[in-house]
Design a protein around this nucleic acid. Structure first.
Lengths: 200, 200
DNA sequence: GCTCTAAGCGGACCATGGTCCGTTTATATT
DNA sequence: AATATAAACGGACCATGGTCCGCTTAGAGC
């Protein structure tokens, strides 16, 4: 769980003041701890502020909103996952054949999304499904793999088609409402991946 | 915009008292009117209650929550759409070849979801993407068409794969954030439909 | 028409997300 | 070190979703 930004793109923004940085860290830690011990419902802005020993205004200045705070928590764990895609062991990481990597990607996303379901739900995908940076990373990765597989057509759209069934709202419906077994969901996704990548 | 339930399944619940029914209608109308004239942000529970001339408690008893109220509004317009699938003119309605119907389904969903984006966002897919009844209907329809097309495999899963890219969170990302043209999104979906239904 | 009761009703009340603005402080500059 | 200033801070304050509970009433049974 690192606190560096996803895809550390060079930002020209003036660096954060040291007290600000300290508070950001304290707030994230406080939120995390409350979530772990009492669940996400207990992560109220007042509680986080109190636990971190700062005023409520500070929480909002740092994270804009409750969703923003949750999003920050989520991004931290997403960046761990990104690392395992970029530099981790195959088949998720580099080194394996593209199709193996694609299937590993699917399984990995399926697991991680369900695992962080609460957090994702609280991060509240207000409009988007998750932070633009996080979405962007997976999209780029899938497009890359489809390219390696020699898939013809509008690869960006096909990538979306592969990612969409792995997003929480859809998985929630299947796994938590219709009680479909996760392995069956994965098998269905593998079938989808095969059909999408299969040459005409 | 009818106020009958989607898929009017026989319910054994004791019928709603007449004053309750009257209030439900008044509340829906009030919410609708406020939304039309001032946007969904102005649809606060207090405002709706006031406009309908009832107490706030009544709004909550009828619709449980703000999301519930929005959901009711949404269901009303969904049932219009359902009617056009079940009894409307081809190719969306019955009569056209299955593939034509499938493609018409996609276009129609795409348009209607984007058109009602605000409402859907406010209905807040809290967990699920939309009401179970509404989801269920589209799922059944797509599975039926895939069956007619003689598609082999886990049809339920393939149906999900076709519906997922048409849900708001995904379309929002593409259309409103990445500014992808709607026609391109549709073309991508058609390609997906072809790949999924293409025989091995 | 009268009675009884479950359902419905209203609006005060609470919790929490989010804003505002006067005060404090880190840091760049001299 | 002194100064200036933009940034950060805190917590009172507001709006709104959601709950609660004592009062009212529709309508079934007589």
């Amino acid at each position: 769980m690192t606190d560096r930004p996803l895809l550390p793109l060079l930002d020209d923004r003036p660096r954060e003041r040291s007290d600000a940085a300290r508070n950001r860290a304290a707030l994230l830690r406080a939120a995390q701890e409350i979530a772990e011990s009492c669940g996400y419902d207990a992560v109220t802005m007042d509680a986080v502020a109190a636990k971190a020993g700062v005023g409520k205004g500070t929480v909002f200045r740092r994270f804009q909103s409750r969703e923003g705070l949750m999003g920050a928590l989520l991004d931290a764990s997403e960046s761990e996952w990104q690392a395992s895609v970029m530099t981790g062991p195959p088949p998720l990481g580099p080194g394996a054949p593209p199709m193996d990597r694609l299937l590993a990607f699917g399984r990995s996303r399926l697991d991680i999304v369900l695992q962080h379901a609460d957090l994702i739900r609280n991060a509240g995908f207000g409009g988007a499904v998750r932070s633009y940076a996080a979405y962007s990373f997976t999209a780029t990765h899938v497009r890359y793999l489809l390219g390696e597989l020699g898939v013809q057509g509008d690869i960006a759209m096909l990538a979306v088609a592969l990612m969409a069934p792995l997003e929480l709202p859809i998985l929630d419906q299947q796994v938590h409402i219709e009680r479909i077994d996760v392995d069956r969901v994965y098998a269905g996704w593998v079938d989808l991946a095969r059909r999408i990548t299969r040459p005409a």
